[in-house]
C-alpha cells in the first residue's frame, strides 16, 4: 500500500502507459537503437535536473544553470584551445569548478540579502550570458577545432550492436556518469545531514533556523552543487555534440524544471526524490523525442512543454494540499 501511495510509483505508472501509447502509434519506438538514443538524450538534462531538484527541495528555484553551463563549457574549450591542451579529466574539473563558483554567487545573494532565488538567478543568468558573448566571443567552435580528446571520450559506448545492414549503434557510456551522479545525489539527500537540511529548509525555514541548522552552509551547498552540475553537464554536452556554441541551452531551464516537477518535486519546496526526477526526465525527453518523430513543429513542442509544467505543478500542488488537509 505504501508503495502505491508513493509519487514515484504513480509517475512510473504514467511513464509506462505513455510508452505503451507511443509504441502503439509508432512501433519503431521499441527498437533498441531508438531506446539507446533516448537514454543518450537523458544524460545532459538529467545531470542538470539533479541540481535543480536540490534547489527545489530547499524551497528555491534556479533558472541560471543553462547560462552557467554554457559559460563553463565555452570558457573551458576556449582555454583548452589557447593552451593547446587536449585532455578530459582536467577540463571537466575546470568546468565543474567554474559552475560551482557561479553557483556560489547565487548562494551569496540568496543567503546574505535573503533575496528571492528566482530574481537572483534571473539576474546572474543574464549577466553571465552577456559577459560571455560580449567579452569572450560569439563564434562557434565546431568539429574541426574541437579538442579531440573530449569527443573521443564522449563517443565511448558501453554496449555496441551491429545491425543486419552492417551499421553499428551503441549505448553511450555517458549514461553511466549520469546514473553515478544520480546515485550520489540520492545518497547525499537521504543519508547526510546536509541533504536532510535541504529538506528541512524547504519545509520550514524558521523551524530549521530554530532547530540549529547552519543555513549558510546549506544554502551555499545547494547553489554551489547546482552550479557545479551545470558546469560539468555543459562541457560534457559539447563533447557529445562535437560543438561549442556560446548561444547554446537557451530555454533549457523550462525543460529541466518541467522534468523535475513532472518527477514529483514540489515547487513549494520540501518534497522531491532522485528516482522521481529521473523518471520525470525520461518522460519529458521521450515526449519531446516523439514529437520530433511525429514531425511536430518546434513551436508546438514549446506549447507541450509549457503545459507539462502547468499540469505537473497543478497536480503536485493538489497532492500537497490533500496531504495537509
Amino acid at each position: 500500500m505504501a508503495l502505491l501511495r508513493r509519487s514515484e510509483t504513480v509517475i512510473a505508472g504514467i511513464l509506462l502507459l505513455a510508452m505503451v501509447l507511443i509504441g502503439t502509434i509508432n512501433p519503431a519506438f521499441w527498437q533498441l537503437d531508438n531506446l539507446f538514443s533516448l537514454m543518450r538524450s537523458n544524460v545532459i538534462i538529467g545531470i542538470m535536473a539533479l541540481g535543480v531538484l536540490l534547489v527545489l527541495i530547499s524551497g528555491g528555484i534556479d533558472v541560471s544553470f543553462p547560462a552557467f553551463a554554457v559559460a563553463a563549457m565555452y570558457l573551458t574549450i576556449k582555454g583548452m584551445l589557447a593552451l593547446g591542451y587536449n585532455g578530459v579529466v582536467l577540463p571537466l574539473l575546470a568546468a565543474t569548478i567554474m559552475g560551482l563558483l557561479f553557483g556560489a554567487v547565487n548562494g551569496f545573494f540568496v543567503y546574505k540579502f535573503r533575496m528571492i532565488p528566482l530574481i537572483v538567478t534571473l539576474g546572474t543568468s543574464a549577466m553571465v550570458r552577456g559577459f560571455l558573448l560580449g567579452v569572450v566571443g560569439t563564434s562557434m567552435i565546431n568539429i574541426n577545432k574541437m579538442p579531440t580528446a573530449l569527443i573521443d571520450f564522449a563517443r565511448t559506448d558501453v554496449i555496441s550492436v551491429t545491425k543486419a545492414d552492417g551499421t553499428t549503434y551503441g549505448l553511450t557510456a555517458m549514461v553511466l556518469i549520469y546514473v553515478g551522479l544520480a546515485v550520489a545525489m540520492h545518497l547525499v539527500l537521504r543519508y547526510t545531514m546536509i541533504g536532510r537540511s535541504a529538506y528541512a529548509l524547504g519545509g520550514d525555514p524558521e523551524a530549521a533556523r530554530r532547530a540549529g541548522f547552519d543555513l549558510r552552509k546549506t544554502i551555499f551547498f545547494i547553489y554551489c552543487v547546482a552550479g557545479a552540475l551545470a558546469g560539468f553537464a555543459g562541457l560534457l554536452h559539447s563533447g557529445m555534440i562535437w560543438l561549442a556554441n556560446p548561444r547554446d541551452f537557451v530555454g533549457l531551464e523550462l525543460d529541466v524544471i518541467a522534468a523535475v516537477v513532472l518527477g514529483g518535486a514540489s515547487i513549494f519546496g520540501g518534497r522531491g526524490s532522485v528516482l522521481g526526477t529521473m523518471l520525470g526526465v525520461f518522460m519529458l525527453v521521450m515526449v519531446k523525442n516523439s514529437l520530433i518523430i511525429m514531425r511536430v513543429d518546434t513551436t508546438w513542442q514549446l506549447v507541450v512543454v509549457g503545459s507539462i509544467v502547468i499540469v505537473a505543478t497543478a497536480l503536485s500542488a493538489w497532492r500537497d494540499r490533500r496531504r495537509t488537509a
Partner: peptide, 30 residues
Amino acid sequence: QDFSLFGNLTVAENLAMNVHLGEKRRLMNW
C-alpha cells in the same frame, strides 16, 4: 504556538533531528 516542526518530514525524523544536530552528525542513520 506553531510547534516549529517540519511538515514535509516524518514524525520519526522530526523527533530525532535535534539529537542528530546536537551530536553534530554528518550522516543520517535511519
